[in-house]
């Protein structure tokens, strides 16, 4: 757990530096375009801009710790509240996208590695190179064109739920879970239908790096000395493939998942814009255009903290699977 501390510290420092790098007077920036002299002065006091850098930093950290991430200029609400309200929508998208990608990419990578030179291998290699070259927003748009405009199979790409439905009562914030809790199958299906295209878009994006890593790691493991030993001892194919090769290969794949998650959080922003998804990505884009800096900063910080949490989880899993990594309590 201690490993995360310097990361969090570093993230806060950079975020602090960025707020002070704003062109002109940060107080004017945070007070917004409509502010008068008095409110600018108030903001200046609150941020401690009249004091030394070190003091400013401690005030900054103090404010963050108390959950005071500033006010959104556009809505006038505290940034934390705005973010928390929209977070489930984004997470629903990201996690399902990641899940789809893992489910498709890992078997594909394994198949390609166990049959090098076969058609599966060629498809895998093509998908991998093409996949990392696809701009997410572009894939999303053309999925919409094909499945909404041409075929009419999917609902209009506007938000999490058709406006005809009422959103399910808030429990987890994840519509597909909340609707099931409420026992409303219709809403569940409606929410699911809305989710299909954006999650496939994200999944296609994440598929390439995971498949690439799985294939590479499996190839490495299969040609390793310990697999040769296992074969020399006549161990069964499934034993060699799963217990010897895949368990070893899964370690670098897990590490890659962290990186993939980082890319997904970025791609999420683009996908939310394409599908008018009311998540924090869309919120951030609006804030960016409106120069609503407190909101942007809150977005960046919360994404970084989320990413650190994911990395921490991966580290813990790695430490459990790999005896060579000492678990530091």
């Amino acid at each position: 757990m201690l490993q995360a501390v310097p990361s969090i510290f570093g993230v806060i420092v950079i975020s602090f530096v960025l707020t002070r790098a704003l062109p002109g007077d940060p107080a004017v920036y945070f007070a917004g375009a409509m502010a008068d002299k008095e409110s600018i002065e108030q903001v200046r006091q609150a941020l401690g801009l009249d004091r030394s850098w070190v003091e400013q930093f401690f005030i900054y950290v103090g404010n963050l710790a108390q959950g005071d991430w500033g006010q959104s200029l556009k809505t006038g609400q505290p940034v934390t509240e705005e973010l928390l309200k929209r977070l489930p929508a984004s997470l629903e998208l990201t996690f399902i996208g990641l899940g789809l990608a893992v489910l498709a990419a890992v078997p594909l990578g394994i198949l390609a590695a166990t049959n090098p030179g076969s058609w599966v291998d060629h498809i895998c290699r093509l998908l991998v190179t093409a996949g990392v070259s696809l701009p997410t927003f572009f894939t999303g748009l053309f999925l919409i064109y094909i499945f909404y405009y041409l075929l009419g199979w999917s609902p209009s790409p506007l938000g999490r739920l058709n406006i005809l439905y009422l959103s399910p009562s808030h429990v987890t914030g994840f519509y597909i879970i909340d609707s099931l809790i409420a026992g409303d199958l219709e809403i569940f299906l409606g929410a699911l239908a809305q989710l299909i295209l954006p999650t496939i878009t994200l999944g296609l994006f994440a598929l390439a790096p995971i498949a690439r890593m799985t294939r590479g790691a499996m190839l490495g493991a299969l040609s390793s000395d310990y697999v040769r030993t296992a074969r020399a001892n006549g161990l069964s194919k499934s034993m060699i493939l799963l217990t010897y090769a895949f368990r070893n290969a899964s370690l670098p794949v897990l590490t890659t998942l962290g990186m993939v998650f980082s890319f997904l959080l970025g791609a999420n922003v683009l996908v939310e814009k394409v599908f008018s998804w009311p998540g924090i990505g869309s919120f951030a884009i609006e804030a960016l255009i409106a120069s609503d800096y407190a909101a942007v900063q809150g977005f960046v910080l919360s994404m970084a903290l989320l990413f650190i949490t994911v990395n921490l989880t991966i580290d813990v899993i790695l430490a459990i699977t790999d005896p060579r990594v000492g678990l530091e309590e």
């Binding site: 310097p6 990361s7 969090i8 570093g10 993230v11 420092v13 950079i14 975020s15 960025l18 707020t19 790098a21 704003l22 062109p23 998650f261 980082s262 890319f263 997904l264 959080l265 970025g266 791609a267 922003v269 951030a284 960016l288 120069s291 800096y293 942007v296 900063q297 977005f299 960046v300 994404m303 970084a304 990413f307 650190i308 990395n311």
Partner: peptide, 25 residues
């Protein structure tokens, strides 16, 4: 190493958004 780890602690595209927002569009 610490410096580069700190950059990597951010989702990179998100960090780029933050930087452009802070430095100017």
């Amino acid at each position: 190493g610490r410096f580069s780890d700190t950059i990597m602690a951010f989702p990179l595209f998100v960090l780029a958004m933050g930087i452009v927002a802070a430095l100017g569009n």
